[in-house]
Write a protein that binds this DNA or RNA. Structure first.
Lengths: 222, 222
DNA sequence: GCCGCTATTTTGATTAGTCAAATTAGTTTT
DNA sequence: AAAACTAATTTGACTAATCAAAATAGCGGC
């Protein structure tokens, strides 16, 4: 069975390859940063993953998962996101603190427990941050949402996903009522100034940076 | 923070010292068996625990927990038993398979999750095997129950605790309706033959060895 | 008081995962 | 094309946890 270190490598390669243009090739340095580890360590470990048939190492270019590696990674991600959902919906834990908990639990829960949890929660499609939960069979829906940095102005929108798990940012999101499901519209976007102004029903307007806006995904409100 | 290896050592020392006469001194060999590790390893690790102030090592005699070590051990045990309770009561998992799951989870769940779990379950006093759950403040009730090997004959009893976590034994217990809560009485005990015969309402009589009988605790049925 | 048995301790090696620092390969710049 | 820069790789060392096997300490028996 894969150690939790290996599981973490696989999970992060999967996550990073999502938004890697290079045919999903993740550069070693990027992976090192994500894992909070020195680049030399990543090289060593990735070679080991390659020897196990879980990843392909292209020297000096980066790493990509094999089908076997991807399957394991998806299972870890599924555990992570179902655990987060459980912590919020059943244990009523704070939206902003569950990420760290799930980081530990994802390596400790068995597939059997995973299935029960999934059933208990009614087979949810997304976790509390709006991140899609891979299916049991290993399919990861990854709809390309517009973000507050790219969506059309003046249309009625709702938040679907918050793609930054840092406590600080989530705190901010909760504070200003931008959690998944909230209604809003973009009043103004000033690219040179790098800001986006939001209008929400029954709340004050707020302004945030383009960088922050890009981390909040939205869809048209039905 | 204590590694899960350390947590395991502490937990097993606590468990073994319960039924150690020697003022709670656990012999190294016993601990080695419990941890499925070679005796030399235990010596090394116990010395390290002693250096950390978690245990007292009496050379060639055994090991005992310090108050600090006991506190940690109780917390691990609390996690273990609450997780087991959760797995059975909320996730409806099989009584006989939850021990192994909890063995992993006890090292991954935070104190915060622990508290929520405890609240969700209504602060239970015992896990599904009837083993007492240490309180948050670190008190472990350990009522001395009679067992089927020692209780009076012919009195109406009920099972309170099954003190063997092996799958085989638990399987047997379920099969014959001896789970905590079940009613029964001891019809006969033949010490020379080493057997105990049980009578249960609405079920066939069964006979088991004294060794097996000693693992099932009972109280008088109200 | 010596002998031998058993439990414990020592010693030396091993594995997984890591870091620091030196080296190398590729890419830009000039 | 050489120089300079950046990212990746190698190398050597370290820690936690383990095992195998040799050494030792206490003990009971005679």
């Amino acid at each position: 069975m894969a150690s939790s270190t290996v599981e973490n490598y696989l999970k992060h390669i999967l996550l990073l390859s999502e938004d890697a243009p290079d045919g999903g090739l993740v550069p070693m340095g990027t992976l090192a940063d994500a894992l909070a580890v020195v680049p030399g360590t990543v090289t060593t470990m990735v070679k080991m993953l390659a020897a196990e048939g879980l990843a392909v190492h292209r020297a000096r270019e980066g790493v990509r998962l094999t089908p076997a590696g991807r399957k394991l990674a998806l299972n870890v991600l599924r555990k992570h996101r179902l655990v987060e959902t459980f912590l919020v919906q059943v244990l009523k834990m704070d939206w902003t603190e569950v990420h760290a908990e799930a980081e530990q639990l994802e390596h400790a829960i068995s597939d059997r427990v995973l299935d029960r949890l999934d059933a208990l929660l009614g087979h949810p499609a997304a976790d509390p941050h709006g991140d899609p939960i891979p299916s049991r069979s290993g399919v990861l829906e990854n709809p390309v949402y517009a973000t507050l940095a790219t969506c059309p102005l003046g249309t009625s929108l709702q938040v679907t996903r918050v793609t930054d798990q840092s406590g600080d940012f989530l705190q901010f999101v909760v504070q200003h009522g931008l959690t998944p499901g909230s209604a809003l519209e973009v009043a103004e976007r000033d690219l040179p100034a790098g800001i986006v102004r939001l209008r929400r029903p029954g709340r004050r307007e707020i302004t945030l940076s383009l960088a922050a806006a890009a981390k909040i995904s939205v869809t048209r409100r039905k």
